[in-house]
Simulated assay, not measured.
Amino acid sequence: MRKIWIVAVVATSLFSAAPAHASEKGWNDAGSIARDALVVAAFGVPAVQGDWDGVLQAGGSIAVAAGATYGLKEAFPERRPDGSDNKSFPSGHTSMSFAAAATLQNRYGWKVGVPAQLVAAFVGLSRVEARKHHVHDVLVGAAIGEASGFLITRRANDRIQVFPWGDTKGGGVAVTMRF
């Protein structure tokens, strides 16, 4: 029953975030609302279930995505499409949204993750439509968010665990299962 409630909250957030007039400001506001809803869900879903490890992992995923994004913004200044400043690359709204969505998906599975990923994709679209970011800004932001969400978050069900690894000669993913 909780999962159905969670999916309903995420879906409602997506529909309430739809821009009313499809103006740049409408898209900007809608994207910000959707991003905020995802971040609240990433912290709220585990908190409601008493999953404090999930809360910490959500915080870590979102913090790493935000830190990497803002570091890149300083290292690679790029003019926004609307000309407002030189902080276009990469998209912070998108990186944090995808970090939250990837955390929810990795921790609780596809029933929670797919709606969250759709909301994150909407955030990315909204940033381009609001003329705050170029498409490549959004794609890099999505990659940063997905990476931080999947690398920092563990599944709530510890019977199956996925561990990315790497060294100087290669990398891969190790999957373990408990029966």
Rank of each mutant, 00 (worst) to 15 (best):
N157V: 00
G109K: 04
V45F: 11
D82Q: 01
F179P: 02
S61F: 12
E74C: 02
N157K: 01
R2F: 08
I4S: 12
V123L: 05
F150M: 13
G54Q: 09
Q161G: 02
R127C: 03
A65Y: 05
A75R: 01
G113H: 07
A142C: 01
A120K: 06
A101M: 14
G124Y: 03
W165S: 00
A42M: 08
W27G: 05
M96H: 00
D158A: 11
R79M: 13
G141E: 03
D36T: 14
R2E: 12
F43L: 15
A68M: 15
R154G: 08
T153V: 14
F15M: 12
R35C: 10
A102V: 02
D82I: 05
A18S: 09
P19E: 13
H93N: 11
A100N: 04
D85F: 07
G172D: 05
R80Q: 02
N86C: 06
R131W: 10
L125T: 10
D167K: 04
D167N: 15
F15G: 08
P77T: 13
S23E: 06
Q49A: 15
A116F: 06
A8M: 12
G145S: 08
Y108K: 00
A11V: 12
D51L: 06
G145M: 02
V173Q: 08
A47G: 05
N86T: 06
T94R: 04
V162P: 01
L151K: 01
G60I: 09
P77I: 11
A143K: 03
E129V: 07
N106T: 14
G113N: 01
